[in-house]
């Protein structure tokens, strides 16, 4: 098995990697919280969230808080497993 077999292409981007890092250690996080932690624009963040969502790595839950829309994101089992593999592969590459 080659060294880079487990490197996940989808995580090969700073913002997507950041989203996953936050979500694996938190039950969930809403859009604004992610935006604030990652320091990115709305459009940019939304597009990366979309791509993680479409590969079923994260889940989206939309609701209303005080009549304002609130979107919360959380990581799926698959996402967690893939992220773990990716981290292990990164660590191996460094060694």
């Amino acid at each position: 098995m080659g060294l880079i077999d487990n490197i996940n292409k989808l995580f090969d981007h700073r913002i997507r990697l950041g989203i996953m890092s936050i979500l694996v250690v938190n039950e969930d996080a809403d859009f604004n919280r992610l935006k604030e932690l990652l320091n990115v624009t709305d459009g940019n963040l939304a597009s990366h969230l979309k791509s993680l969502e479409s590969s079923k790595y994260i889940e989206v839950e939309k609701s209303f808080i005080d009549r304002k829309p609130n979107t919360r994101y959380s990581v799926t089992k698959l996402g967690k497993a893939e992220f773990k593999k990716h981290l292990e592969a990164l660590e191996k590459l460094i060694k």
């Binding site: 990697l17 890092s21 936050i22 694996v24 250690v25 938190n26 996080a29 932690l37 981290l87």
Partner: peptide, 21 residues
């Protein structure tokens, strides 16, 4: 390269801490 991976890993760690602690 190696340095970039290292930078990535430390960024991951930092984000994990900052978002959860």
């Amino acid at each position: 390269n190696k340095n970039e991976h290292l930078k990535n890993l430390s960024e991951i760690k930092q984000l994990m801490d900052r978002s959860s602690r």
